[in-house]
Structures are given as structure tokens and as C-alpha cells.
């Protein structure tokens, strides 16, 4: 229980003993306790199949939660249906198919803007276009014709239009060239600086640690390690145990 003025003590997002998975008898996330503070940029790492993606999907309401709770700004949102979570200020950007390919850029934004007051929608869209000039050049273009990087921009822009307090992204760098990845990560850093809490699932360990405040490592559906991004990046044991997979594989290839 926090009284007035203590809002900083309430985590922006908190999960308690979260167990989740597609099938009732097969939990993939097996009891995760996580607290993310306001304004933090947290990166979620772990080997393939560790349950990172399922974990954030469960928070967003896309994967059934078997037990445990999710709190957003101190309010229990465990049972809130997926479409209402965004109204509470939780925005999610899925890894793939995160835009409506058969609709124009403008329509994609308008769909998300629908929950803002009618008078404000156009203004919010034009504000976003200022922030993402790439999208503004031809708003009537079909989203399906955009490049990978532009799609990611559109997906993020769509998530921002509702002025979320927390933004969760599932591997936004997947399938993008290193140059574009750098652009996307710079953009995320800017968004984070403007006051939005960010949780980022990533395979791109080095790049993610470079912008994150804190890193969480999931293994087999459980939280195995957490620490500041800087210490984790330098910790040889952690790197070998949990991040090594990608590093050694890269080394093996080159």
C-alpha cells in the first residue's frame, strides 16, 4: 500500500509467480517474479525457447495465464482482456506481423488512435508523423509495401499513439540489417528518455545491453539472473552461460 507521493515506489510493471502457456497442462513460463521501475529500460534475454516471448505475450494478454498476477502501476491487470490493456497504458509490439499489411500507414495509425478522443486523433497522428518523417512522406501507402525497418517504425508509432506508460517489444531487431537495428535502438532510447518505461525481448545481446538499464535472463521459463546491463555485459561467467550461445556460435562461424 503506497500513500500519496510514493508513486516512485510502485513498480511500473510487476509480475508475481507468473505461470503461463498455450496449453493448460504445459506451462512455458514457470513462475516469474519481475519488477520494472518507472522509466526503466529493461532487456529480457535468454536462450531460444526460454519463454521470453511467451512471458511478454502473457503480460499483453495473448497467452493464457494459468496462475500468478500482473500489476500495472499497482493495479491488478491479470484478467483484463487484451484489448483493454492498451487502454490502461500498456502497449505491446509483437515480433512478426505487427502491422496490418492490407491497410495504409494512415489507417494503421487511425485504428490505434480510435481510443483517443475524436478531436485529438488527427493531432496525435500528425505529431507522430513529425517524429517518424519516413512514414509521413506517403501516408496512403499500404503498410505491406514498407521495408522491414519502416514496418518496425510503423509498429512502434502505432503503439505510441495511445501515449502508453509502458512499451513492451518482442525482438524488434529480428530480420533487420545492423544499420537499421542501430536506428531502431536509438529510437527506443529516445522514447525511453521521453518517460516511457520499456521492456525489450532481444536476441541481439550486445546491442540490447548497450541501451538497457537492466537485464533479466530467463532460462527454461524461470528467472535465472538479473543485474545492471553494464555488469552483465562484463560478467564472463554469465556471458558464457546464458549469452554465450550466440557469441560462440558467431565465433564458430567466423
Amino acid at each position: 500500500m503506497t500513500l500519496g507521493g510514493g508513486t516512485n515506489l510502485v513498480p511500473a510493471l510487476q509480475t508475481r509467480s507468473l505461470i503461463a502457456g498455450y496449453e493448460p497442462d504445459m506451462p512455458i513460463v514457470r513462475g516469474v517474479d519481475l519488477s520494472v521501475l518507472k522509466g526503466e529500460l529493461v532487456v529480457l534475454l535468454g536462450p531460444n525457447g526460454a519463454g521470453k516471448s511467451t512471458f511478454v505475450k502473457a503480460i499483453a494478454g495473448l497467452v493464457p495465464i494459468h496462475s500468478g498476477t500482473v500489476h500495472l502501476d499497482g493495479q491488478d491487470i491479470t484478467a483484463v482482456p487484451v484489448h483493454n490493456k492498451i487502454r490502461r497504458g500498456l502497449a505491446f509490439v509483437p515480433q512478426t506481423e505487427n502491422i496490418f499489411a492490407t491497410m495504409s500507414i494512415y489507417e494503421n495509425l487511425l485504428l490505434a488512435a480510435a481510443m483517443a478522443p475524436k478531436s485529438e486523433r488527427e493531432r496525435r497522428i500528425s505529431t507522430l508523423f513529425e517524429r517518424f518523417p519516413d512514414l509521413a512522406s506517403r501516408p496512403s501507402r499500404l503498410a505491406g509495401q514498407l521495408s522491414g525497418g519502416q514496418r518496425q517504425m510503423l509498429a512502434v508509432a502505432r503503439a505510441l499513439i495511445v501515449h502508453p506508460s509502458i512499451l513492451i517489444l518482442d525482438e524488434p531487431s529480428a530480420g533487420l540489417s545492423p544499420k537499421i537495428v542501430a536506428e531502431v535502438f536509438t529510437m527506443l532510447q529516445d522514447i525511453n528518455k521521453s518517460g516511457v518505461t520499456i521492456i525489450l525481448v532481444e536476441q541481439n545481446v550486445r546491442a540490447a545491453l548497450a541501451i538497457a538499464d537492466r537485464a533479466i535472463i530467463l532460462v527454461e521459463g524461470k528467472l535465472r539472473h538479473e543485474g545492471s546491463a553494464a555488469t552483465l555485459a562484463d560478467d564472463p561467467i554469465v556471458a558464457k552461460l546464458y549469452l554465450g550461445a550466440s557469441a560462440t556460435r558467431k565465433a564458430g562461424v567466423s
Binding site: 498455450y22 504445459m26 531460444n48 525457447g49 519463454g51 511467451t54
Partner: peptide
Amino acid sequence: KSDDAELASR
């Protein structure tokens, strides 16, 4: 159950 539970489930 054995290996990649998440992938298999997805």
C-alpha cells in the same frame, strides 16, 4: 516436454 517447449507449443 523434452526440449524446446516454447517453440513446439508456438
